[in-house]
Design a protein around this nucleic acid. Structure first.
Length: 490
RNA sequence: GCGCCCUUAGCUCAGCCGGUAGAGCAACUGACUCUUAAUCAGUGGGUCGGAGGUUCGAAUCCUCCAGGGCGCACCA
């Protein structure tokens, strides 16, 4: 490592001795490399400016071919001593793979037909002191790819593509909602009471107020306050933080869309979800058939809609209303039949465990699962005439839970009771958010609410089977493999 | 948190049953003005993730530790 750096430092000093600043300034007027290639027909023989990182170098004595790369693509350069002059060519000799340069020259095609810039002048914009990863295989080591994502982006085009696809998808989500009259809002990331979901929160502390705060596990209760305030269609795309395990589908901080529409219910949210995700699929893939891992997923709408109870019967072969049957099945699978600290069997919990165990893995094609056991959804309006079920749906794609939606409970007194019931069963449930209940007492319109796990959506649409592939900087334990700079000396 | 697997040159990887640590790319020196994984000739580069142990001898076998991957658990 030191040796590479030493050689390059010497070149850097030589450049300085020639009066060249190896860390150049603003460079403008250049075309993106992909547009240089695309517009070749109109630009042939003309002068163009370009900038990028040297990704390949093929010297031939007093001439040289090299490739430069920007985030759109790659272009070949051809530089000859008799075109740029001796001293310029000498400076060129001090360039290495990974250096960033700006060039100006004439567009032409080589004998083999490759679009190439005949360099007339170039500027060194940044001298790299360390070499880029291997040019043919790129950076393969998963740990290094995540720890040094910049190297991953430089050397693996698919990483750049996934990262830019992520931007497109999120932009598409925003556009879809904006076009339907939604407004994007920002609600607190630091909350005195972490509500809207059940999960262990991260705790932090505010010094001046001398209070503990929690990084939010969901924005839900704040967005509903806005419904009370008369904002009829709101959404937020932002980070949630959950102090839970890390897996291929879980990162401690992850991006969530939550949307609320006054005067609507979960049926409207189903339409919204299906419309949004199917059009995003078509936009990105030009087809509803998309690859995912070893499989192929058919995203053609309309999507299957089945109730929780129906699916439990279909895939697990048990009747939700037959408690003994549920218990038998659960015990057969070695599942616990009692909730935390409870002495009696908890039907809703058993049914949910069976669902996760036996139904979820089968839900490859997009499936809306409707009407969940009521005790699992304290913020949800109950089904009419069937108070044991609540008006909630979850959307599964490729066996992954992608969206969650309720017909929002807007009755403040019932909400209080449902919170209390939950507090009795969930050991992690914190205090009740009284301020939220107070808001609700002023009247919250009936509403449909929707949450979509954005990282998981991006996984599906970019064919990534690990959430770490769609998050630029996933959480890793601070590692020893990247040398830390000693700031105490020098 | 638990189980299985991985960690060898800057990068990508070999290294069999324990016997002097290898290749390609990258680097360095030289040749080369239409190459494109440029080519040709030559050179340098290693605390084999870390610490112990077994052994005449360990990259290789054992133990512990660290980081990572996958699965499970926890969990929108």
């Amino acid at each position: 490592m030191e040796k590479f750096e030493q050689d390059r430092l010497e070149k850097l000093e030589k450049l300085r001795a020639m009066g060249i600043d190896p860390y150049g300034k603003r460079y403008n007027g250049q075309k993106s490399l992909v547009s240089i290639v695309e517009d070749y027909h109109d630009e042939e023989g003309k002068r163009v400016r370009a900038a990028g990182r040297i990704s390949s170098l093929r010297p031939h004595g007093k001439a040289s071919f090299l490739d430069i790369k920007d985030w759109t693509g790659k272009v070949q350069l051809y530089i000859k001593q008799d075109k740029v002059g001796e001293s310029k060519f000498e400076a060129f000799g001090l360039l290495d793979l990974g250096d960033i340069i700006g060039v100006e020259g004439i567009l032409f095609k080589t004998r083999t037909g490759e679009i190439t810039i005949q360099v007339e002048d170039f500027t060194i914009l940044s001298k790299a002191l360390l070499p880029p990863p291997e040019k043919w295989h790129g950076l393969r080591d998963v740990e290094l790819r995540h720890r040094q994502r910049y190297l991953d982006l430089i050397s693996n085009p698919e990483t750049m593509k996934t990262s830019l696809d992520r931007v497109k998808i999120i932009r598409g989500v925003r556009r879809f909602l904006d076009e339907r009259g939604y407004v994007e809002v920002e609600t607190p990331m630091m909350q005195p009471i972490p509500g809207g979901a059940v999960a262990r929160p991260f705790i932090t502390h505010h010094n001046t107020l001398d209070i503990d705060l929690y990084l939010r596990i969901a924005p839900e209760l704040y967005l509903k306050r806005l419904l009370v305030g008369g904002m009829e269609r709101v959404y937020e795309i932002n980070r949630n933080f959950r102090n839970e395990g890390i897996s291929t589908r879980h990162n401690p901080e992850f991006t969530m869309l939550e949307a609320y529409q006054a005067y609507a219910d979960y049926n409207d949210m189903m339409e919204l979800t299906e419309g949004m995700l199917s059009s995003l699929t078509m936009e990105l893939h030009g087809s509803y058939q998309i690859p995912y891992g070893e499989k192929s997923v058919d995203m053609t709408p309309p999507w299957r809609r089945k109730t929780f109870v129906e699916l439990l019967k279909e895939y697990a072969g048990v009747d939700f209303y037959d408690l003994n049957g549920l218990i038998e099945k659960a015990e057969g699978l070695g599942l616990s039949t009692h909730g935390d600290g409870k002495t009696t069997p908890d039907r809703d919990r058993i049914a949910n465990d069976l669902f996760e165990e036996l139904v979820e893995p089968q839900l490859l094609a997009p499936t809306f699962v409707l009407d969940y056991p009521a005790s699992l959804c304290p913020l949800t309006k109950l089904c009419e005439g069937r108070p044991e079920l609540a008006q909630r749906f979850e959307l599964y794609i490729a066996s992954m839970e992608l969206a969650n939606s309720y017909t929002e409970l807007n009755a403040p007194l019932e909400q209080r009771d449902r919170f209390m019931e939950q507090a009795g069963t969930e050991m992690t449930a914190g205090k009740v958010d009284e301020d939220f209940l107070l808001a609700m007492k002023y009247g919250m319109p009936p509403a449909g609410g929707l949450g979509i796990g954005i990282d998981r959506l991006i996984m599906i649409l970019t064919n990534c089977t690990s959430i770490r592939e769609v998050i630029l900087f996933p959480l890793l334990r601070p590692g020893a493999r990247v040398t830390e700079v000693d700031t105490t000396s020098s």
